[in-house]
């Protein structure tokens, strides 16, 4: 196998059997398995508290996995921290900004840190600022900007560096419709250019047509994974939208949990009470979609 081929075939991000949590002995996520390849957009979806942000925190290195493995281009964070971090750009749900830096300075700082040349960064900043209607705000401090504009600083900083992988958490919160459209178009463009994208969002209609596949989380476990056709087949909704499919999956899981609760109550009066993530049967196991990889690999 030629080295180039090997590189192309290595997924940008591979998450295998990931389990972890905040409190010792209590997993918030369990058995998470998916990957993001180059030129692929994966949607990580789930209800509030499903574990999306926890998965992202593990990928970023903010949390240490209790079980499983996370590799970025085949590398683990502990082994190659600098290369690992340069592989992705992260857009957090709430903007993390330096109050002392203007919009332009934030973008320049990101470009410097990622080793993007000054000329390239300036040209890209102008282009992106025009797309996101931020031209007149480039020299403003974050304190003088609205929430949506602060979110745009994060997006500009991530997009200017053109990393191989984008990790994007709820990017549409506070964005105006033009901003949402500009972002989706840009992500589609970057995807065509070969970037991988992992996006968490509650705005399912916005990502339905853009994502190649979805990882559906529920109570810290993978409830389903696959492309739109897979999810439709699983729920028996051939024309269903992602919203319809998601709601059906969550309701079905709720019914299963209620039934499991009733049978548990009948057999085990103590009522379990161990690990909410570990204590449930894997809902993906009973369906037609295997939960091995988000891209079906």
């Amino acid at each position: 196998m030629a080295p180039r081929d090997a590189e192309n075939r290595t997924p940008l991000l591979r998450v295998e059997r990931l389990s972890g949590g905040y409190v010792p002995g209590k997993n918030v996520i369990s058995g998470i398995d998916f990957q993001v390849a180059a030129g692929e957009m994966v949607g990580l979806i789930g209800l509030n508290g499903a574990g999306k942000s926890t998965v992202l925190k593990h990928v970023l290195g903010l949390m240490k996995p209790r079980e499983g493995d996370i590799r970025m281009r085949g590398m683990r964070l502990a082994e190659h921290p600098e290369t690992y971090r340069k592989t992705y750009a992260w857009v957090p749900e709430s903007p993390l900004l330096y109050p002392e830096l203007t919009v332009r300075e934030h973008v320049r700082l990101a470009a410097m840190a990622y080793g993007v040349s000054e000329r390239e960064a300036e040209a890209e900043t102008r282009h992106l600022a025009a797309l996101f209607q931020m031209e007149s705000k480039l020299d403003a401090l974050p304190a003088h900007l609205s929430k949506g504009m602060r979110q745009k600083i994060m997006l500009l900083s991530a997009l200017v560096v053109r990393p191989p992988l984008y990790l994007i958490d709820e990017p549409f919160l506070g964005l105006d419709p033009l901003g949402i459209r500009a972002l989706l178009d840009l992500l589609a463009e970057r995807k065509r250019e070969g970037a991988g994208i992992l996006i968490c969002s509650h705005i399912l209609s916005a990502i339905e047509r853009r994502c190649d596949c979805f990882v559906v989380l529920h109570h810290g476990r993978m409830m389903a994974a696959g492309n739109m056709a897979d999810l439709r087949a699983r729920t028996g909704m051939p024309d269903g939208s992602l919203d319809d499919v998601f709601v059906a999956l969550v309701r079905h899981a709720g019914t299963e949990e209620a039934e499991a609760g009733r049978s548990d109550a009948g057999t085990n009066p103590a009522g379990g009470g161990t690990d909410p993530a570990d204590g449930r049967k894997n809902p993906t196991g009973g369906g037609t979609i295997p939960a091995k990889g988000a891209n079906g690999k």
Binding site: Y98, E100, E105, R108, A111, M112, A113, G115, E118, A121
Partner: peptide
């Protein structure tokens, strides 16, 4: 100077 090794200096001078 615009270089990765100077990013920290740029940040802290502005801060």
């Amino acid at each position: 100077r615009h270089a990765p090794e100077n990013a920290g200096h740029y940040l802290y001078l502005l801060v």
